[in-house]
């Protein structure tokens, strides 16, 4: 017995320390990105200035003055928000119907939706560019970016919502039907309040995926609807020599979403299970 307590005592100190070390290793690249963004381009590649240097905001002022950071950032906010909103507007009713009135085909439909997510984007890039440029004339518009972001995230959003809605007892919905509540009323007044945590974390995850999307947003835009991923794409070209500048642009593109993630971490942890937890 004594040996056991002795061992668990060591464990009580050892494992938290290991956990802290692992967490710091995982966080280090992000820290390093932010850290380097306060160095000048020259300092950033000098080993003698690895940890000690005179911090400067030069990279950030340069970024806002010469690269029009805010336009890209505003585009990112607009497209990600609306895409999330539309994905929920289409996804909530669909997931509601699937969870409370499943038919023989519900599972197949759900699986098919997920399988559309596996289509290699590169395979349909050319037709997409062709159609949007030549037939629809919506290339490089906010509308197109919002539509595409909404569509590529819709399957995941529906799946997440479905797994939450399934947890709600059917009796609650059926009782409200007896009382003559309309379908819209059921969704608005009963379903969404009950599954609020799930809806919020679906919205959050969709928003994060939209913000970080870098295939379509880069290839279906030029200037007007270009998002932050396009800004990164444009700035990574001169490799190596401009670490300071690169870090500042990257930090400015990444930090809004990382901070949002920090604040909503609890919500996200609770919600991000995809039905994995019973």
């Amino acid at each position: 017995m004594a040996a056991v307590t002795e061992r668990s005592k060591i464990g009580n100190i050892l494992w938290p320390v290991v956990a802290w070390i692992v967490a710091l290793i995982f966080f280090f690249p992000i820290f390093w990105l932010v850290f380097t963004s306060f160095k000048t381009d020259a300092d950033a590649v000098k080993p003698e200035h690895l940890f000690f240097f005179t911090p400067t905001l030069e990279n950030y002022t340069n970024m806002t003055e010469n690269y029009d950071y805010w336009r890209f950032a505003i585009n990112s906010v607009i497209t990600s928000s609306f895409a999330t909103l539309f994905a929920l507007a289409v996804g909530v009713p669909c997931a509601y119907a699937m969870a409370f009135n499943p038919s023989r085909h519900t599972k197949d439909i759900l699986m098919w939706m997920l399988s559309t997510k596996m289509l290699p984007a590169a395979a349909v890039l050319y037709p997409m560019t062709f159609i949007t440029k030549n037939f629809l004339g919506i290339f490089d518009t906010h509308f197109l970016v919002i539509l595409v972001l909404c569509l590529i995230n819709l399957p995941i959003a529906i799946w997440m919502l479905f797994t939450y809605f399934k947890e709600i007892p059917k009796e609650i919905i059926e009782a409200s039907k007896m009382d003559g509540v309309t379908t819209w009323g059921e969704i608005k007044d009963i379903l969404i309040p009950l599954a609020w945590g799930g809806v919020a974390s679906t919205a959050l995850l969709t928003f994060i995926f939209c913000w970080n999307e870098a295939y379509w947003t880069v290839r279906l835009t030029t200037i007007d609807a270009a998002t932050l991923s396009k800004l990164i794409e444009g700035n990574r070209a001169p490799e190596g020599l401009f670490f300071g500048r690169l870090s500042a642009v990257s930090t400015a593109a990444v930090m809004p979403i990382v901070i949002l993630g920090w604040f909503c971490q609890k919500q996200l942890v609770q919600g991000l299970t995809f039905g994995a937890v019973k």
């Binding site: 992000i30 990105l33 990444v254 993630g261 920090w262 942890v269």
Partner: peptide, 13 residues
Amino acid sequence: VLLISPFFVMPAV
């Protein structure tokens, strides 16, 4: 919080 952070980073970055 530290552990989760990498998940939010843009793939290009």
